[in-house]
Design a binder for these strands. Sequence first.
DNA 1: GTCACCATGTAAATAGTTACATGATTTG
DNA 2: CAAATCATGTAACTATTTACATGGTGAC
Lengths: 187, 187
Amino acid sequence: MSLPHAILTALLEKPSSGLELARRFDKSIGYFWSATHQQIYRELGKLEQDGLIRALPAGAPARGQKKEYEVLPAGRDALTAWVSGSDAPRPVRDPLLLRLRAAAVVGTGGLEEELRRHLDLHRSQLAEYRAIEERDFPPERDGEEDRLRHAVLRGGIGLETFWTEWLAETLTALGERNEEKERKRRQ
Amino acid sequence: MSLPHAILTALLEKPSSGLELARRFDKSIGYFWSATHQQIYRELGKLEQDGLIRALPAGAPARGQKKEYEVLPAGRDALTAWVSGSDAPRPVRDPLLLRLRAAAVVGTGGLEEELRRHLDLHRSQLAEYRAIEERDFPPERDGEEDRLRHAVLRGGIGLETFWTEWLAETLTALGERNEEKERKRRQ
DNA sequence: GTCACCATGTAAATAGTTACATGATTTG
DNA sequence: CAAATCATGTAACTATTTACATGGTGAC
């Protein structure tokens, strides 16, 4: 139920074609709700059928032709209604935590390397978010209307901060564990 | 690809029936990889077919009868191999962030209430994790073999801490926004 | 013996991923 | 015009969720 509303939000900010949406998802909304271009095309078709969006009139609507969509009033209403809906909080569902837990039972294989790889990735994601924050939300110029967008970005920053700290901590703990093993092996 | 390995891990810790697994998922592994009993039954069937687990011999294997499974050597090997595998880090994919982002475009409906509800839920989840930590990982008694399990739990604690802080912060920001609106309205 | 609950399962729908097909436009 | 890239789309598969079906066991 989330993808169509993600698309409506993106289209309200700026009418776009399917591929443009896919690219913008990579840059902003996709940070917390990713989608492939196939998902997006399928969903655009459904939204058009349901009368929530429409294709902007263009020359010939053919296969290789760009097709731009805009949100209709019904679409805006649907999004407004959805905003006050409710979900259960999502549990994390991260395979890395699962691998760690499995490692507690069958032993850590090349897991440390994977943790370091993730640490690097999360660090650069964090740097990217901070750059966006500096660019789009400079201190003392945070207008009322942007506070929600800023809150979402702070969510991303908080999450990446958590991951980098946790990964660094966990790598340290693993390192100590290996040192203990080494000591035992040498005795 | 994660669910079968979650099940193998749980079964290695203790041979169980499908429903027992479903219940144990609710309490430990399910905190970061949830699954319904239907998913678990189906996956148990596949794992048995693939020769990674087997049903413990019991009286009559009938419909309403409990059926316990244990992991075979091939299953342990498969899990060991999987531990050193690799995934891309999961982006968050949380509808709440999406609603917030949508609210930046069509206005915040009853969203504040939803944020408060989530804050409560995350607070009690955090309290639960901390209770588990005190019970299972008392200071100075943290054996080498439990360090990985403790790391996973600290992951949960870190995430819940992030959410409670972010939600509290965001509610404050929303409150200020509303006060501004109030002031404007009164002028 | 019936009601509540334990236990296993089937079926159908929705969501998401991966691989590939096809036409249009731009660039050398 | 050939190659690269833009753009839309189909198909098949895997994963997840939701609703329901069926039998077994123990408490009253």
